[in-house]
């Protein structure tokens, strides 16, 4: 579980996050949604510590992340997995070496134990037989899956995903979403996903946080979204004419 208390972040005079508080529960897929420029990415970078917020607290299962010393913070980092927008695979290494890398760096297991774990994770993301390919040689969807395998290889307690569906076709997107939901349930991970893909919001949003211009404008589950009368949220979710008509249909039911 991750508790966020009144996070503020500004770059110079530009206030990007203006005080956000929320709770992300374990075993659930928590979604952060919002338009481009709403502060989603900055918010996530603050959560994982790539950016330091100007104010506020972040509690990882009760531990105050921002007030820990370097060593204690590293210990929490070990429990964090992150899937990046462009997958961020190391392009000088093969698929297998990419997934192996965290194990090499942080465990003293034997080579056989490590390889078993790598193959298990690659199987878990349905990626068999691509071990010796380089990131440049595989498709965007496969790269995402390697990214997921790499981020879960150390059994993280927290999993962050920055726009996992960007640049993927709708079908592959669904597969990635399903995979993330399954992994979250199976290993009781606190998963936090940045997205603006409405299919994901409706499909996996057990908890949805809607950001608007640096504020938390709304939160609830995907079921609540359909009933919400928050104007900004409705404008965001039901953007196209097709979806607006759909929404009318729901209202008339």
């Amino acid at each position: 579980m991750i508790e966020v208390k009144n996070i503020k972040k500004h770059f110079g005079d530009k206030k990007v996050l203006k005080g956000i508080s929320t709770v992300f529960e374990s075993g659930k897929a928590n979604l952060i949604i919002g338009t481009s420029g709403s502060g989603k990415t900055v918010f996530m970078k603050c959560l994982v510590g790539l950016l330091v917020p100007n104010e506020g607290n972040i509690l990882y299962d009760g531990e105050d992340f921002l007030n820990l010393n370097k060593k204690e913070r590293k210990n929490i980092r070990r429990k964090i997995g992150m899937l990046f927008q462009g997958s961020a695979l190391f392009d000088s290494m093969t698929v297998e070496e990419n997934v192996l890398f965290p194990l090499n760096m942080f465990t003293d297991w034997t080579m056989k134990e490590k390889m078993d774990r790598v193959n298990f994770c690659l199987e878990r993301v349905n990626l068999v037989g691509a071990n010796d390919k380089f990131p440049g040689e595989i498709s965007g969807g496969m790269m995402k899956r390697v990214g997921i395998a790499r981020s879960i290889v150390l059994n993280p307690k927290y999993l962050f995903c920055d726009e996992p569906n960007s640049g993927l076709d709708p079908q592959t997107s669904l597969l990635i979403d399903e995979l993330l939901t399954d992994i979250t349930k199976d290993y009781n991970i606190t998963t936090i996903i940045n997205t603006h893909d409405m299919n994901s919001v409706m499909g996996m949003g057990e908890k949805v946080v809607f950001l608007h211009q640096g504020y938390k404008d709304w939160e609830g589950s995907s079921k609540d979204i359909l009933k919400s009368d928050n104007q900004l949220l409705n404008d965001f979710i039901f953007a196209s004419d097709f979806l607006k008509a759909l929404r009318k249909g729901i209202d008339n039911m």
Binding site: L50, R77, F84, G86, A88, P102, F160
Partner: peptide, 17 residues
């Protein structure tokens, strides 16, 4: 630079490297 742009440095940082 390429590692920075493609977030590979961030990925290492998150792992605790």
């Amino acid at each position: 630079g390429n590692m920075r742009i493609t977030e590979q440095i961030d990925a290492l940082e998150i792992m605790g490297v």
